[in-house]
Simulated assay, not measured.
Amino acid sequence: MERVDDRLTVARRTLAEAPADQVTERLADVLAKEYAVTGVELYQVDYRLAALLPLHGGATVTRPGDPAWRAFDHQAEVLAGRAVFLPVTVRGERLGVLRCSPAPDDAGLRAELAQIAEFLAHELQTARAGTDRYTVAARTRRLTLAAEMQWELLPGRSRTGPAFSLAGQLEPAYAVRGDSFDWAEQDGCLFMTVLNGMGDGTQAALLTTLATQALRNARRAGLELADQAGLADQAVYSQHRGDAYVNALMLELDLGTGVVRAVDAGSPRVFVLRDGSVIAESLDEGLPLGMFESSDYDTQTFQLVPGDRLFVVSDGIMEAAGEAGAYGDLALTRFIRRTGSLEPLQAVRSLLGDLRAFVSGDLEDDSVVVCVDWNPPAA
Score class of each variant (00 low, 15 high):
48 R>E: 10
128 R>H: 01
169 Q>A: 10
30 V>I: 01
378 A>F: 10
168 G>V: 09
325 G>D: 05
119 F>A: 09
117 A>F: 08
32 A>M: 02
333 T>Q: 07
55 L>V: 10
359 V>S: 05
65 G>F: 13
246 V>H: 14
25 E>H: 09
134 Y>C: 02
157 R>N: 04
273 L>T: 00
377 P>K: 14
121 A>E: 14
240 H>K: 15
43 Y>P: 00
281 E>T: 02
163 A>C: 02
77 E>C: 08
6 D>G: 15
89 T>C: 07
21 D>C: 01
105 D>I: 07
192 M>G: 00
176 V>I: 15
70 R>D: 06
309 R>A: 12
59 A>H: 06
246 V>D: 04
140 T>K: 05
243 D>M: 13
199 G>D: 04
376 P>C: 10
224 E>Q: 06
292 F>M: 06
83 A>Q: 00
295 S>P: 00
168 G>C: 06
8 L>K: 11
326 A>K: 14
151 W>K: 03
207 L>Y: 01
375 N>C: 07
198 M>D: 01
206 L>E: 12
180 S>Q: 02
253 L>K: 11
237 Y>P: 01
231 L>K: 00
228 Q>A: 07
346 Q>D: 04
113 L>Q: 05
135 T>L: 14
275 D>H: 15
258 G>M: 08
228 Q>E: 12
350 S>A: 09
230 G>N: 06
111 A>Y: 01
373 D>H: 13
139 R>T: 05
295 S>D: 04
297 Y>S: 12
264 D>T: 13
7 R>D: 09
187 D>F: 10
143 L>K: 05
127 A>L: 04
276 G>F: 13
213 Q>L: 07
13 R>L: 15
87 P>M: 04
229 A>H: 08
378 A>E: 13
340 G>D: 10
250 M>N: 01
38 T>N: 03
144 T>G: 04
379 A>F: 06
211 A>Q: 00
325 G>I: 08
275 D>G: 10
306 P>T: 14
239 Q>P: 01
183 W>T: 05
324 A>D: 13
317 I>G: 01
47 Y>Q: 10
354 D>Y: 15
101 S>Q: 11
220 R>E: 02
181 F>T: 03
329 D>A: 07
355 L>M: 08
197 G>D: 02
219 R>W: 07
168 G>W: 09
341 S>I: 04
349 R>A: 15
376 P>H: 10
54 P>E: 07
93 E>W: 00
173 A>E: 10
54 P>N: 13
307 G>V: 01
134 Y>F: 04
318 M>Y: 13
152 E>M: 11
300 Q>W: 13
334 R>G: 06
43 Y>N: 00
371 C>A: 13
272 V>G: 01
94 R>E: 11
119 F>G: 06
42 L>K: 13
244 A>K: 15
256 G>Q: 10
350 S>R: 00
61 V>R: 02
259 V>L: 14
192 M>R: 07
155 P>F: 05
96 G>P: 11
353 G>P: 11
117 A>V: 04
124 L>I: 03
151 W>Q: 10
282 S>G: 14
323 E>Y: 06
24 T>D: 12
165 S>Y: 13
348 V>I: 11
187 D>T: 01
348 V>A: 14
273 L>F: 08
24 T>L: 15
